[in-house]
């Protein structure tokens, strides 16, 4: 029994001839904040999508709470064209749909906000509670689940209060200011009662003030809900401030890992972000 809540083992994602994620291994220890950084197009979101079941990785395995949740090996058409490593290491195919993975306790947010546009703030959070409800379609339609519905509504209200969104309860989700939309997306993810929260660029489009608040907010929710947080981010100051551990990838491959201080001074990372000066 390791203390890693999530382990990504040798994940490779190949689209046609392009390897978007190459042999990536990431360990996320319980109750820590781990960040995945890298320049644009490095394959960060692809890695997220492999973990959350949006994509089926070409090769590799993802374990969550010591259970294999995703596993694949190059098969079918990919067998011949596979250009990655560790081709023979995995033999099973486990490819659940994203909702199954959310059911297990991994919730995520999106790089470009994906709130339900026609719903209010309250409904957005309430709908995310649908998955954990024990009703069926008949009891829900004929109100046989009144108790559960009431509990869901109370929990939603409580969550909104904790996130400071209760004044916007009846506003349309898309009418909120950008920072609050991000916050709502996190609240919605929290409504699924996750153990692990994946944040895809939570500070994208935020001003420094909002970013500051976000850092505080992420720490708070980790404490309050006993979460582990795994995030992708571009804002270096945010990453350096809140992360316990950082993985850096470029062109799909890991180029560095370590605590923030080490990563900051790592020559590979600096090269990847700033470019390398070729000696004439």
């Amino acid at each position: 029994m390791s203390n890693n809540i999530l382990s990504v083992e040798n994940i490779t994602m190949q689209f046609g001839g392009v390897i978007a994620v190459n042999n990536l291994t990431i360990e996320v220890p319980e109750h820590k904040i781990v960040a995945l950084i890298g320049p644009n197009g490095a394959g960060k979101t692809t890695a997220f999508n492999c973990i959350t079941g949006v994509y089926e990785p070409t090769n590799g395995r993802v374990r969550f709470l010591d259970e294999t949740i995703v596993e694949n090996h190059p098969h079918g058409k990919m067998k011949k064209s596979y250009a990655g490593e560790n081709a023979g290491l995995y033999t099973h195919v486990v490819s659940p749909t994203p909702d199954t993975i959310t059911q297990l306790g991994i919730a995520r947010t999106f790089q470009n906000i994906r709130l339900w546009k026609s719903m209010t703030v309250f409904e957005n959070v309430l709908t995310a509670k649908h998955m954990r409800a024990r009703q069926n379609v008949f009891s829900a339609t004929f109100r046989g689940n009144a108790k559960e519905e009431k509990r869901m509504r109370e929990e939603t209200m409580q969550l909104l209060q904790e996130q400071g969104l209760e004044h916007h309860k009846d506003d349309l989700a898309t009418s909120l200011p950008y920072g609050l939309q991000r916050r709502l997306e996190i609240a919605r993810a929290l409504a699924t009662n996750p153990k692990l929260l994946l944040l895809d660029e939570p500070a994208a489009g935020m001003n420094p003030q909002e970013t500051q608040e976000l850092a505080q907010f992420i720490r708070e929710i980790r404490e309050k809900y006993g979460l582990t947080v795994f995030l992708i981010e571009h804002h270096m100051d945010l990453v350096m401030k809140i992360s316990d551990y950082i993985y850096v990838i470029d062109f799909g491959s890991e180029i560095a890992q370590g605590v923030p201080k080490d990563v900051q001074n790592n020559q590979h990372v600096i090269d990847a972000y700033l470019g390398v000066v070729e000696d004439a």
């Binding site: 749909t97 709908t127 339609t141």
Partner: peptide, 29 residues
């Protein structure tokens, strides 16, 4: 009644954003 129930909300979630609905645990199929 169905539309105003939890299932109705899940249906609307699918309409508004299928990917988000699935990521929030709504079994699309």
């Amino acid at each position: 009644l169905l539309i105003n129930s939890s299932y109705g909300r899940a249906f609307k979630a699918i309409r508004d954003d299928e990917i988000a609905a699935e990521a929030m645990g709504v079994n699309l199929a």
